[in-house]
Amino acid sequence: MALSDAEIVRRTYWRENRRWMLILGSIWFVVSLGCGVLWVEPLNQIQLGGFKLGFWFAQQGAIYTFIILIFTYARVMARLEKRLGLEEPEA
């Protein structure tokens, strides 16, 4: 059975959404539980100014990355919605 155009748009949107969630979610994991907790000891051997790098990730770097991740996600999803004609009317 051939898919309707609407169904193709729906599936494309969801596939792209999942792809971005996977990419950004991996970075989220790496900077927090990865650099901040699991690999903190080797990273602490590296000095960044007055910070040990692992400590810096755990107390500052992870948070800055989180902000960038959310704004990136908001941006790519808005662009995807524009491309697929799924923009919401402004209320």
Partner: peptide, 25 residues
């Protein structure tokens, strides 16, 4: 005692990434 407290910093901010991608929209 310092580094151990990072759990609050990462935990209470990292939740917003989950919220933004998986729940709120």
């Amino acid at each position: 005692n310092g580094y151990g407290g990072s759990v609050f910093l990462m935990g209470w901010t990292g939740g917003y990434v989950i919220l933004a991608m998986l729940i709120a929209p």
